[in-house]
Nucleic acid binder design. Structure first.
Lengths: 337, 337
DNA sequence: TTGTAGGCGTTATCAT
DNA sequence: ATGATAACGCCTACAA
């Protein structure tokens, strides 16, 4: 079923069919109707490849992250998909996995295929070769990164100021008299590094305990978080607050702390704070206070940028956007608790 | 940068370039090398649209669900993406949202675009018009459904036998002496209906309490689940076990039950069991036993089917596949507790 | 307002 | 083993 069939059926030329297909104004209502009828009758749908060939676009955006299975990325992808679809873009999803091996292939596949632009969430590309490749690519394809640390001169970057967020959090804890704040984190992505910075700066600024064991890098799992806290307790290292880079870790940490307090018969007083403000924070008992990195805002901005970019609209020179983090208070820590 | 440029650079015809591009055997090693060099030098990458135009495929699979933001679908999409990519397919994601309005557009967009096949997770399409459209579509495009209730004569269906799973669960509870098992559920998708069936059949078979208030349809949220249990408790309706159609609901239900037991100073004895075996079940306190619907197996089967279908390989006549659910035991209920 | 014809970048069928 | 050339289905000057 091609444009020719429609032309024949409607007794017009293919040019006319193409015109009604693209809503050209220069076609009489009568013939327009005639063609429309033919299309309906023959159940015609234009061939996307042929269209893409001349238009050089298929209205597809590549979305890259390490793993949609992770709640955080899932939420991001969900927001992006909805927003982009409302602008009539499809998204093709690319999950690189979280290993450290080169992943250039993922990106080149995407590019060599058809995407009009790429939105990268987090820092799924670790190898330096990958980043170099990305820089190169950004010269020809719009690339928007969300919370990543690639410095792409030609790209656009949207980040949440998690460093400031964690710093403030540490300040709050300090004001409440905490001295020994443990920090559990998993990967040192851009986001991860920022948070760690916020923590160390906060500790230094408020002259809190710098016991090195208070900072622990662990796997992104409940078990690792539990084990880490367990070890700290066994070693009798004083802790009076726990911050983690991810809600999941906070769940594990809090669980272990609570168990310990139960056996030692002490009242629960140690605040536990996670990051990402995911549903996990709500499912924990007690519910977890969490640093919200405003994923919704980040994603909306990304889409907005993407659309204006692809529309060829001129935009301000700004290439870097930053939004503030926000503390979502729940049972595990509140200002007046 | 086209095939013509390469041909010129390498002093061959475009046909030859195309041949090395597609790894045709009938090209001398010497010219092959020459062409390869030219491609490298000019940084050539074939135009996907042109290729798609003649090949009539771009190796893309459409994956449809109501919302990737939901942990369950996120996990499914994650598995599908990884599997399909390993077979060199891209996936374009389509989230329909969970409303009841017609969503034919989502599907037709996908089809009218370029997907080689579609994998539908759950029952994102509710309107009968949509389903009719889907049936029509399945005549021309391979459609594989995972846990959905569309009966597509030309499609393929993969489901988990959750009815049997819940039935067994009820049996276990009955054997343990439970009489009044509450059931909380949200949407009546295919999966939702199956579980409800398993519950009612189990109740009937073991002659347990048929108090209608024990069955409640609620929103998919912690709050709704809490509120539902709260109401039951207030109304003094006896409950000695709770099953929910989703882990999230189980978290809310268990939370309320525990709070109630604490205030009434009763020991915790009411088992709470969720479904989907998600990370939420692990984050709850106590950790939740959950009916695992084997999403991994379902997705793997879907991909396997998809690949053989697209390879044109003949496959057995079987169009419907079914896997057994499995109970993942955790603290909230175990056989010998 | 409508039609003709050339071009988009491949693949594939012929010859040679 | 290689080259010329006709599709593939659409868009878009340019002509009428």
């Amino acid at each position: 079923m091609t444009i020719y069939d429609i032309a024949k059926e409607a007794n017009v030329s293919i040019a006319t069919v193409s015109r009604v297909l693209n809503g050209s104004a220069t076609v009489s209502p009568k013939t327009r109707e005639k063609v429309a009828q033919a299309m309906k009758k023959l159940n015609y749908t234009p061939n996307p490849f042929a269209r893409g060939l001349t238009l050089n676009t298929m209205r597809v955006i590549g979305v890259v992250c390490s793993d949609v299975g992770d709640a955080f990325y899932a939420k991001a992808v969900s927001i992006l998909e909805t927003e982009l679809r409302s602008h009539n873009f499809d998204i093709v999803l690319c999950c690189t996995g979280s290993g450290t091996q080169p992943k250039q292939k993922y990106i080149s596949d995407l590019k060599n295929k058809y995407v009009d632009a790429m939105i990268i969430i987090g820092s799924p590309l670790a190898a330096t070769a990958d980043i170099h490749y990305l820089k190169e690519l950004s010269k020809t394809t719009p690339i928007i990164t969300i919370n990543s640390n690639y410095h792409l001169p030609e790209g656009f970057s949207i980040v949440c100021d998690e460093e400031a967020g964690i710093f403030q959090l540490v300040s709050l804890l300090a004001a409440r008299g905490c001295q020994a704040i443990a920090y559990l984190y998993d990967a040192l992505t851009h986001s991860g590094r920022q948070k760690l910075n916020g923590y160390t700066k906060g500790i230094a600024h408020h002259q809190l305990s710098q016991e090195p064991k208070l900072i622990q890098q662990i796997d992104r799992s409940l078990e690792s978080a539990s084990a880490a806290i367990e070890t700290l307790l066994e070693q009798q290292i004083p802790i009076d607050a726990i911050i983690t880079s991810e809600d999941l870790l906070a769940v594990g940490a809090q669980r272990t702390i609570l168990a310990h307090e139960k056996t030692t018969n002490t009242e629960h007083t140690i605040p536990v704070i996670g990051c990402n403000n995911s549903v996990l924070a709500e499912c924990a008992t007690p519910t977890l206070t969490s640093l919200d990195n405003r994923l919704d805002l980040l994603c909306q901005k990304a889409v907005e940028l993407c659309i204006t970019l692809l529309n060829g609209d001129t935009l301000d020179e700004q290439r870097d956007y930053r939004v503030e983090a926000r503390l979502e208070y729940r049972e595990s820590f509140s200002i007046r608790s």
